[in-house]
């Protein structure tokens, strides 16, 4: 294919990606060094209240935003260097907490709290998703052909459902005296409220994520199981391998590329955890990195969006993504070289 034809085919897609992905990235990077604020002026205001014999007058200096002719606040943008990053990371407080060995006070800072949650969340769900997905795939492969269709249909439901709604549907089972809470209270003989403390919410969020992603792992493993070499399996049987040994030495090595693929996709997606926070309304207890940026972008009570702090937190989130991507990129590069 000539370069010109290639350019015609790929052009529109490249244009969209440059305009809506590459350009915003650069602009976020630049924004994180600037702050746009209303300009304030200090004025001396004399307020008088009527009193006996004579008025009591108080003179104070007030700061108020300057308004332009249209009545809008005048804003100015100034270069602040790394100030926004400092506002997000709060290095002084973080360092003090670290040097005192006081982790819990480090976790009162939003960014570190979000980082802690995102990392635990990602690392705890990863093995669970792989194990559960593999277990379902093996069980379905073992089941009779007639029930496979319906089982795959049911299994796809948690994967396909809108993430916010999936999280909500689990939350509604546990909220207040919902039936799952009632069941747990009956089973454990004690009073339970799932949404009063952080760690129970975190458990529910972990459960939700595994429930949501395991079907994806299952479908991929199931497709992989269809291509297991039957001859190898038979020779393993002749050599006297037990079922467990066959799984461990024949099937899992065969599925290894798929396990790596799922891990990478899962790491990328989990690192972007966001919908759980919305669905479980857990922002008082648990927040994730992406939610932190989202929250800074939402207008606060006075209608301001802290764009520059959001940009700084977005750029810090990016650092993690880059670290996650390096092994993937190295592998792809090696494949390309080899091919």
């Amino acid at each position: 294919m000539k370069f010109k034809t290639f350019a015609w085919f790929v052009g529109p897609s490249i244009f969209l990606m440059l305009l809506f992905i590459a350009a915003p990235l650069i602009s976020v990077f630049l924004q994180s060094f600037y702050v746009t604020q209303p300009v304030f002026e200090s004025v001396e205001v004399e307020t008088c209240t009527p009193g006996f014999l004579e008025q009591t007058c108080v003179t104070e200096i007030k700061t108020r935003p300057i308004l332009d002719d249209a009545g809008q606040m005048v804003t100015q943008t100034s270069y602040v260097g790394l100030q926004s990053y400092r506002n997000v990371l709060e290095p002084a407080r973080a360092w003090e907490a670290l040097s005192n060995g006081n982790i819990s006070s480090l976790l009162t800072i939003d960014f570190w709290k979000a980082l802690r949650f995102t990392l635990t969340f990602t690392l705890v769900t990863l093995p669970l998703v792989i194990i559960v997905g593999l277990a379902i795939a093996v069980a379905v492969n073992n089941a009779s052909k007639r029930i496979r269709g319906p089982v795959i249909f049911i299994s796809l439901l948690p994967f396909i459902i809108t993430p916010v709604i999936g999280a909500l549907s689990i939350r509604w089972l546990f909220i207040g005296d919902g039936i799952m809470t009632a069941f747990l209270e009956w089973a454990l003989m004690r009073d339970i409220s799932m949404f009063a403390q952080g760690w129970t919410i975190e458990l529910l969020m972990l459960f939700y994520r595994v429930w949501h992603v395991a079907p994806f792992a299952f479908v991929i493993f199931y497709a992989g199981l269809q291509t297991v070499n039957q001859d190898t399996l038979e020779s393993a049987i002749i050599d006297g391998a037990s079922r467990w040994e066959r799984l461990k030495f024949v099937i899992i090595p065969h599925l290894m590329p798929l396990i790596i693929f799922i891990s990478l996709i899962h790491l990328m997606d989990c690192y972007r955890a966001f919908e759980e926070i919305i669905g479980f309304s857990s922002q008082a207890h648990r927040i994730s990195l992406q939610w932190l940026t989202y929250d800074l972008l939402t207008p606060d009570d006075s209608g301001n969006r802290s764009i520059s702090r959001a940009s700084a937190s977005a750029m810090l989130t990016m650092v993690g993504i880059v670290i996650l991507l390096i092994p993937l990129l190295r592998r792809t590069w090696r494949d390309h070289k080899g091919a």
């Binding site: 992905i21 350009a23 990235l25 602009s27 976020v28 972008l297 977005a314 993937l328 792809t332």
Partner: peptide
């Protein structure tokens, strides 16, 4: 592939 991994909030911070 790199673009696919970007958190959407990063991009929205650029658009807003």
């Amino acid at each position: 592939l790199i673009f696919r991994a970007l958190p959407h909030s990063v991009l929205v911070a650029g658009y807003l």
